[in-house]
Design a protein around this nucleic acid. Structure first.
Lengths: 209, 209
DNA sequence: GGATGTGAATGCATTCACAGCA
DNA sequence: TGCTGTGAATGCATTCACATCC
């Protein structure tokens, strides 16, 4: 039995998969060909057992006595996460955060391509954000279909985030990366990931106090 | 016994405290004076028991038969998180993300003030980022001391993040909000919170696949 | 020796269910 | 009746420890 995708891996394990991939790419840049669970773990402040267990949920990728092949494991993890192909991502919100994300190099380096930029503010329509024309929300259904976009980034003010989310979902988007400080309501089958910067700072304030 | 701060609350509970605070402020804007654990939980997709247990780690804030006083609980949570006063935050990195964060309204609304902006690139020194002069890293120790800054935001490229982190810690910073896609090594007593945008998208890609 | 993969044991967070109070 | 606070029970993730293989 060698599931290319786990039947039921713990959620935290899936989150760490991304970190393993990121770290493996660093090892590869450093010219390493093989890495042990202990080394991979130490670089991320995790135990070796944790690393092995996480990877084992998804298959048998290691070589006893040797460790894991860096190149090999990168390929496996990409396959599991689904980033062995390019994802077109829609970006809504041409404000400060939208601008920063529209040409964030970290996205393209990891298989994500911002495909189009939208805004709800009529005053911004027709202007550009870097190389992107800012499009009205009315273009959304057509563009989403053309680009086959299943992911979107929400970089709009809190008070219109739910409304925009609804429109994105109606246009076929299945995963939302939300930068508005609100808890979104979405139907089953749609994934949401909210990044609230103020919450992040609050957590630090608590720990530092 | 009524600990204003829990002796040992689960980490996940502390993270949710920030969400409760955010949601309570929304309830307050809506004019509500009281809220039950069930209502607070539903708005965040949590169970009522979870809400009560989380809050109970920190004290007895509720009124049986009534619920929680919105204004009262906001004050308590601010006190626990340490955001009942203004935090001066240093920002390093005057690129796209740094620019977006330097005037993110969500920070000031929640008790955080960007106090100064730094960059390692000599070409940027002396220029401005919005209202902030971009300062050289050599100014860091003095500014950190003057402002009493214990928190900092790292918005620099991955390959210099560790170096900048070391300098910030040497300057007395105790909490780092890191936007570089790397795992930072810090001494005990320093808190790190890494936000990796590509990792966030990867998680969505996995769930959507 | 050096490393993986994995059942068993541990530890921790969530949920349950109810006593107690308004 | 409505709601909180909390011990007890459950469920889930992590860690341990070892059989297995290079």
């Amino acid at each position: 039995m060698e599931p290319s995708r786990a039947d039921s891996a713990p959620d935290p394990a899936v989150r760490r998969l991304s970190l393993y991939l990121r770290q493996l790419e660093t090892f590869r840049r450093a010219g390493r060909h093989t890495v042990s669970s202990r080394q991979l773990g130490e670089s991320l402040h995790l135990t070796d057992a944790q690393v092995r267990k996480d990877l084992a949920y998804f298959g048998q990728f290691g070589h006893p006595g040797i460790g894991y092949g860096v190149e090999e494991l990168i390929g496996r993890l990409r396959g599991i996460l689904g980033t062995d192909r390019i994802w077109n991502v829609l970006l809504v919100g041409a404000g400060n955060i939208g601008r920063a994300l529209s040409d964030y190099r970290g996205f393209s380096a990891r298989g994500f391509r911002v495909a189009a930029v939208f805004d709800i503010d009529p005053a911004k329509i027709g202007r550009t954000l870097g190389p992107f024309p800012i499009r009205p929300m009315s273009d959304l259904p057509a563009v989403a279909r053309e680009q086959g976009a299943r992911l979107a980034i929400l970089a709009v003010p809190a008070d219109c985030a739910q409304d925009v989310a609804d429109q994105l979902i109606a246009a076929g988007v299945r995963g939302l990366l939300n930068f508005a400080p609100v808890s979104l309501n979405v139907p089953r089958g749609v994934a949401v990931n909210t990044v609230d910067m103020a919450v992040q700072l609050e957590q630090l304030a608590f720990q530092v106090t």
